[in-house]
């Protein structure tokens, strides 16, 4: 691990991610844990571990809602870091959809990795990973096999409520009226994807969409998004680490790697 050149920290509301990258931006090391309310201590420990492996001091970039609580780090918002991280990993400009637990962002990335425009969901949970989590939990549908379940559904059962609370009761009544479970789950994904598609308005037609964030690991969501946006969606490698990688890139000495 002698090649480590920078550390990136992404303190999200649900998970805390710490990565090390080398001078070309390649991912060398990572730590992912549920976020501890005592952020300072957790970050210090995780960064310490990575430093120890690297064997020397490294510049630290921080992002996420706890970014300002990371001592000695350059703090930048998730928007800027996700753009940088996605740009480095995809190797090109484009539109990124990042779906995390609390936030969904759509970021337009320019030809040198800069942010051209961005949009975020409004403060309620509708349109975020949390929405799905709550309702799937209520339906007792496990994450494993979700993509297959949805892919196998013959038709989506429309779920019109976008408020998490309303949708929960709507879904329960759909179950009670004997609508097929796979169709309901598909309907949920369709509803969520349409919320995201609304955020992504004005995206140039035909563009392949890049996707990051924990929800990108849910194949059913990726498929629904592909349908809602009617264009290809490409999931970035290690999608949940995109922000942390971007934070590390922002403190990499020398010119930004392409």
């Amino acid at each position: 691990m002698s090649g480590a050149a920078a550390i990136g920290v992404d303190v999200g509301s649900t998970t805390c991610k710490v990565v090390a990258i080398d001078g070309t931006g390649a991912l060398l090391d990572r730590r992912v844990e549920p976020t501890d309310p005592r952020i300072e201590r957790q970050v210090e420990r995780l960064v310490g571990e990575i430093r120890a492996t690297a064997g020397r001091e490294l510049p630290v970039g921080a992002t996420g809602y706890g970014r300002k609580r990371v001592a000695g780090a350059r703090a930048l918002t998730e928007i800027t870091c996700h753009a940088r991280g996605a740009f480095a990993r995809a190797g090109r400009a484009g539109t990124l959809v990042d779906m995390g637990g609390q936030d969904t962002k759509v970021i337009r990335i320019g030809p040198s990795g800069e942010v051209l425009d961005f949009a975020m969901n409004d403060k309620c949970a509708a349109g975020t990973g949390r929405f799905l989590e709550v309702i799937l939990g209520r339906l007792q549908v496990p994450f494993e096999g979700l993509a297959e379940l949805v892919a196998g559904a013959s038709r989506p059962v429309p779920v019109s409520s976008t408020c998490t609370v309303f949708a929960e009761s709507e879904v329960i009544s759909l179950v009670a009226s004997d609508e097929p479970l796979d169709g309901i789950v598909k309907g949920l994904h369709v509803a969520l994807a349409s919320r995201v598609a609304a955020l992504a308005r004005g995206v140039p037609a035909g563009d392949e969409i890049l996707m990051s964030g924990g929800v990108a690991l849910n194949g059913a969501m990726v498929a629904s998004l592909r349908e809602a946006l009617s264009r290809p969606v490409r999931v970035l490698p290690d999608p949940q680490l995109t922000g942390a990688v971007g934070a590390a890139l922002s403190v990499l000495p020398g010119p930004a790697p392409r």
Binding site: T77, V115, P253, A256
Partner: peptide
């Protein structure tokens, strides 16, 4: 959008800061 809240939400802070980073070109170059 706000509701005259006493405190700005974390998300609102992020939006404002990201916006300024965007128009100032911060993060475009290391």
């Amino acid at each position: 959008e706000g509701e005259l809240e006493a405190q700005l939400s974390g998300q609102a802070v992020t939006r404002i800061e990201a916006f300024v980073e965007m128009i100032s070109g911060a993060g475009g170059a290391a």
